[in-house]
């Protein structure tokens, strides 16, 4: 591998931080879920880079599991969004404050 591992870490950190900022500042629930996908992809890049660096297949298998969990998360999350939209006719995050202190 001619590209140093730290480059992959920097790229992953940039994508992950973008995802964190997206989760914190967006008000659209769908945009928040998209930002969570960004964070999952950042960790996947890390896993694959280290799998290549350490010559260990475990990293790629973990990406496989992360992908499975991401698919499950999207299915349940989008079902919840549809239910929320039916209940309040909106998916603006600030209108759902029932569980807030």
């Amino acid at each position: 591998m001619t590209v140093p591992i730290s480059y992959y870490l920097i790229l992953s950190a940039i994508v992950f931080l973008t995802g964190v900022v997206g989760v914190l500042i967006r008000r659209n629930i769908i945009a928040i879920l998209l930002s969570i996908e960004l964070m999952l992809n950042a960790t996947n890049i890390n896993f694959v880079a280290f799998s290549e660096y350490l010559q260990d297949m475990g990293g790629q298998v973990f990406v496989f599991f992360a992908l499975t969990v991401a698919a499950a998360e999207v299915a349940v999350g989008l079902a919840i969004i549809i239910a929320l939209h039916r209940a309040k006719d909106s998916i603006n995050i600030e209108e759902f404050n029932l569980l807030k202190w």
Binding site: N28, A75, I82, H85, S90, I91
Partner: peptide, 18 residues
């Protein structure tokens, strides 16, 4: 799936930042 839900909900309200 995402695009399906976005189209299904037909979001038109302005989406400002938090």
């Amino acid at each position: 799936l995402y695009l399906f839900v976005v189209m299904l909900l037909n979001l038109k309200q302005d989406d400002r930042y938090h």
